[in-house]
Design a protein around this nucleic acid. Structure first.
Lengths: 138, 138
DNA sequence: CACAAAACCTACAAATATTATAGAGTAAAT
DNA sequence: ATTTACTCTATAATATTTGTAGGTTTTGTG
């Protein structure tokens, strides 16, 4: 399951995608529309900005806006950013790898191999789907 | 990511699969071989038994053993049992559904639809792979 | 029968992660 | 000057995960 943080991020990105003609959108507007804690969403949007997905404008009339096209924002990117690994086990994670502590040899571990296959299949899905797919279905 | 509980369950099932000719295997043997806390594993195996995957025998010479064929034990089953939902959001979970609190209408929610598609693709993988796949690669 | 081995069961403790809040700063518009 | 809204860091509250404790029941064996 995704954390609420990641779920909120998707809601916010979707909202920003739908309102990308209106320029900067204040956090307040998004949090009110989706019943999300303003302060919590604040942290999330800041992370998305630091990751290069959003731009922001301070002061009156300010807010956040997408600085990438919706079809360039992959689900995998958002999930990795806020939730961490997509792989089911640390020993098959591409971005958050950690060696297994229960196995004598990772090379001979059937679980490791199967989970690596699962990871590859999962990534195919999550790298193909983008924010655009969400927007198209609204 | 899977919880350690689920990961340990996979290790234990694999071990039992590899030693299915030797009859009942005591927890001690599995926990020692994989460096897993005996007591923690105890709880896990008990759950797997209650779910109908394992049989057990008490007393001296006792232990656990598979009561299903490895190719009948799907990854999806183990994950759902110990970790819960496979879907990325509660509002698209087949087995652990909960309505979304941020959306006015689930039927018009693009995120919901995309995540339902992701769930379907993920399930294709996790329902296809079984304990047998792990055993074959050892 | 006594004893040891091993599953069964319930509760709880410790550690970690998630979710949320607080409050002080900085920048911009009017 | 004032209001609006992002920036930043710290911390509190809550939930979940991970692990432990301690007993009970069952079974095989000498």
């Amino acid at each position: 399951m995704l954390s609420k943080k990641t779920k909120y991020a998707f809601h916010a990105l979707t909202y920003l995608g739908k309102h990308k003609d209106q320029g900067a959108v204040p956090i307040q507007e998004i949090s009110a529309h989706h019943n999300i804690s303003h302060k919590f969403l604040e942290n999330i949007l800041l992370e998305l900005k630091k990751a290069g997905l959003l731009g922001s404008k301070k002061g009156k009339g300010g807010g956040y806006y997408l600085i990438k096209l919706p079809n360039e924002i992959r689900l995998s990117k958002i999930i990795r950013l806020l939730d961490g690994p997509i792989a089911l086990l640390p020993c098959v994670s591409l971005n958050y790898y950690e060696p297994c502590e229960e196995c004598a040899s990772q090379e001979k571990c059937g679980l490791n191999m199967v989970m690596a296959e699962v990871r590859d299949e999962t990534l195919k899905i999550l790298e193909m789907k983008t924010l655009q797919d969400i927007l198209e279905r609204e």
